[in-house]
Simulated assay, not measured.
Amino acid sequence: MTDDHLAEAGYLDVPSAAGGSASRGWWDANAEEYLDEHGTFLGPGDFCWCPEGVREGDAHLLGDLTGLRVLEVGSGAAQCARWLVGEGVEVVATDVSLGMLAAGARYDGGVGRTTPMVQADARALPFADSSFDVAFTAFGALPFVPDADRVHAEVARVLRPGGRWVFAVTHPIRWAFPDDPGEAGLTATRSYFDRTPYAEIGESGRVLYAEYHRTLGDHVAELVAAGFVLDRLVEPEWPTGHDRTWGGWGPVRGARLPGTAIFVTHRGRPPR
């Protein structure tokens, strides 16, 4: 990929196909920088759901995984799946970015584990129908495609009836506020209902990065359409004494506004 310097960034209408395909190149190019910044907090083999620091070892949002087959969607460097491997869980991690998966292979070497990893677009999972019992993602895939309904449909396809689907995303209310962890991030400046994506455009006119907003209602409607039942919506509070900032997340905003929404669901009857 040739260098294409940033020319424009903001809330921009971009072609859906271009925005949806930008994620792979962006994460390939920025995997090392991202992990240099956040890798210590995430850990090479820990399961962190969100910047608030919720760990699966404490929260147990996936439930009892004994004897179950688990799929991680949009895994990044597969830190969460790697933790599950250490717990004796049969798991497969998928991500669209080869750069992230390569970093995951290095993490495997560092911790002495072998994590099954597959490069795949979450909208076209390379697995047979009903081949997993549980699927999850911690901020993977869903924010970076304009057609998240396709992700839900694919997850529903590869899950067995009753299988759990748990995913963490930026809390939708955050899109009404500037992405600033300080006081400036406490005043709403955009309509919550404005679904224009945030995008970065290169000098060539190519979409380098795109992130998409969905309201809570949008998320629920997409889940229902894919045949899922919402069991629980988790909105983690900012922990006392947790002073780390991560983009727009931090103790100032975290004390007043939710930053993460975690949807705990299961596959119900197929949609009509």
Results as ranks from 00 to 15, higher is better:
Thr2Gly: 14
Thr2Val: 15
Leu6Gln: 11
Gly10Ala: 03
Gly10Pro: 07
Gly10Arg: 02
Ala17Lys: 06
Gly20Thr: 07
Ser21Phe: 02
Ala22Cys: 02
Gly25Asn: 13
Trp27Lys: 02
Trp27His: 05
Ala29Leu: 07
Glu37Gln: 14
Gly39Thr: 09
Phe41Cys: 09
Pro44Asp: 11
Phe47Gln: 05
Cys48Leu: 15
Cys50Ser: 13
Glu56Arg: 04
Glu56Trp: 00
Gly57Met: 10
Ala59Met: 10
Ala59Phe: 08
Leu61Cys: 08
Gly74Arg: 00
Ala81Lys: 04
Trp83Val: 03
Gly86Tyr: 06
Gly86Trp: 01
Gly86Phe: 04
Glu90Pro: 03
Leu98Trp: 13
Leu98Cys: 12
Gly104Phe: 07
Gly104Lys: 05
Gly104Arg: 04
Ala105Arg: 15
Ala105Lys: 12
Arg106Cys: 11
Asp108Glu: 06
Asp108Arg: 00
Gly112Lys: 05
Gly112Met: 02
Thr114Asp: 15
Thr114Lys: 12
Thr115Leu: 07
Thr115His: 03
Pro116Asp: 14
Val118Lys: 08
Ala122Ile: 09
Ala124Cys: 14
Leu125Gly: 09
Asp129Phe: 08
Ser130His: 14
Ala135His: 13
Phe136His: 01
Thr137Gln: 11
Gly140Ile: 10
Phe144Pro: 04
His152Met: 12
Ala153Ser: 14
Glu154Val: 10
Val155Pro: 10
Leu159Phe: 04
Leu159Trp: 03
Leu159Ala: 05
Gly162Leu: 04
Gly163Ile: 09
Gly163Phe: 00
Gly163Val: 09
Gly163Cys: 07
His171Arg: 01
Trp175Lys: 02
Asp180Leu: 08
Ala184Pro: 07
Leu186Thr: 07
Thr187Leu: 10
Thr189Gly: 08
Tyr192Leu: 13
Tyr192Trp: 01
Pro197Ile: 05
Tyr198Val: 11
Tyr198Arg: 05
Ala199Arg: 01
Glu200Leu: 01
Glu200Phe: 01
Glu203Gln: 11
Glu203Asn: 06
Gly205Val: 06
Arg206Asp: 13
Val207Pro: 00
Tyr209Trp: 05
Ala210Lys: 01
Ala210Gln: 06
His213Trp: 12
Gly217Val: 05
Glu222Lys: 05
Val224Asp: 13
Gly227Asn: 04
Phe228Met: 05
Leu230Arg: 03
Leu233Ile: 12
Pro236Val: 07
Glu237Pro: 03
Glu237Gly: 06
Pro239Trp: 02
Thr240Arg: 12
Trp246His: 14
Gly248Ser: 14
Pro251Val: 05
Arg253Leu: 09
Ile262Ser: 07
Arg269Asp: 15
Pro270Asp: 13
